[in-house]
């Protein structure tokens, strides 16, 4: 495919790289808009053409930003929507997920043919996308409304760094209940400070602690509530650096960990596929400023961005549909994506 045809996705990649589109919610909305534009204005006649166009974009993003799973997840989900609409459009019995039952009952070789033109596809796709977009926009609110089920009066909640979803969640609970929040400052970016300021504005009693005090404080904590960057297929997390330590401390004191995760954070990939690409290192200047003098020449400084948290440390995922255990993630994945799209 020509570079010029992929200009939309190249722009998105550059926006993400330069931090113009920063939060995963913004990434999600931008991706959705990109695909919506592609569907309404792009050059395609059949579902197959469209899927090829989207897959080219997925490949582009995966090679440019391997650790950024949100845009790829959204596109994968849209591929599934296309498949479903195509199947219903032609009254095929939807093949659905690969299952043992299907293996036994299906009559035909499941030939994948999406090349027949379906005139109504464009309009029905746009309808579905509009619906999907509203879902995206309401996702944070839907998660926040569950706050009262999880936060009780006089509890002590610990959270790490800053997450918009967690912030809304806590604020929603604070409207009805009084509780205390401990914010881990999350060096070297110290987003936790900003989070603490935002929470105090809503009259939540907030304490900021350094990362090293997590273990000392954990014995008093009732619940850990965090956000995440990605949920892997096995229920593990790709979360901000330092979360693994918090999760281990919580495990030690048997404190439950709730992870607030939008559906677009669920990735059908396992850790092994991308060992090298799993983590990224940010500028070391935050750890050791360039002004530190001659020592800079003598030491190695690393500033990794992510942690992998194994699924057995997570108690519950909270999405807009409600709470799910990590062992249930595979079900959510089979609802979200078509198994044929897991590898592109």
């Amino acid at each position: 495919m020509l570079e010029t045809e992929l200009v939309d996705v190249i722009n998105l990649i550059s926006d993400i790289r330069h931090g113009k589109v920063y939060t995963s919610y913004d990434v999600a909305i931008h991706t959705e808009q990109l695909i919506e534009k592609l569907i309404s204005e792009g050059q395609w006649n059949t579902a197959e053409d469209l899927m090829v166009l989207i897959k080219a974009r997925i490949n582009r993003i995966m090679s440019a930003l391997p650790q950024e799973s949100t845009p790829v997840n959204i596109m994968r989900h849209i591929l599934k929507i296309i498949r479903e609409l195509y199947d219903t459009g032609f009254k095929y019995k939807s093949e659905g997920q690969q299952s043992l039952h299907h293996l036994i009952t299906s009559n035909v070789d499941n030939a994948e043919d999406y090349s027949k033109p379906l005139p109504s596809l464009r309009s029905s796709l746009l309808d579905h996308l509009a619906e999907y977009k509203t879902g995206l926009e309401l996702s944070t609110d839907n998660i926040a409304t569950q706050a009262l089920e999880h936060i009780h009066a006089d509890e002590i909640i610990l959270t790490v760094g800053k997450s918009n979803t967690v912030e809304k969640f806590l604020k929603h609970a604070a409207e009805k209940r009084k509780f205390q929040v401990i914010v881990v400052e999350a060096a070297p970016l110290y987003h936790g400070h900003e989070m603490a300021i935002n929470l105090t504005k809503s009259n939540i009693q907030t304490t900021v602690i350094p990362d090293s005090a997590v273990f000392a404080m954990m014995s008093r904590v009732n619940k850990v509530i965090i956000g995440t960057h990605t949920v892997m297929a096995n229920g593990g997390l790709r979360a901000a650096c330092g979360v693994h330590m918090v999760a281990l401390a919580a495990k030690r004191y048997s404190v439950p960990i709730m992870v607030l995760a939008h559906m677009y954070k669920l990735s059908p990939l396992h850790l092994c596929y991308e060992q090298d690409a799993f983590n990224i290192c940010a500028s070391p200047a935050d750890v050791l400023p360039y002004s530190s003098g001659p020592i800079i020449n003598k030491v190695h400084v690393y500033n990794p961005v992510f942690d992998y948290v194994p699924p057995d440390l997570v108690t519950l995922f909270i999405s807009h549909q409600g709470g799910n255990a990590p062992s249930y993630v595979y079900r959510l994945l089979s609802e979200l994506y078509d198994p044929n799209d897991n590898e592109i």
């Binding site: 690969q98 299952s99 043992l100 039952h101 293996l103 297929a233 096995n234 229920g235 396992h270 062992s327 249930y328 993630v329 595979y330 079900r331 198994p339 897991n342």
Partner: peptide
């Protein structure tokens, strides 16, 4: 052949 499953997914199948 149905994909990579966690043990709990087996009972589901």
């Amino acid at each position: 052949d149905l994909g990579i499953l966690t043990p709990s997914a087996v009972s589901d199948e």
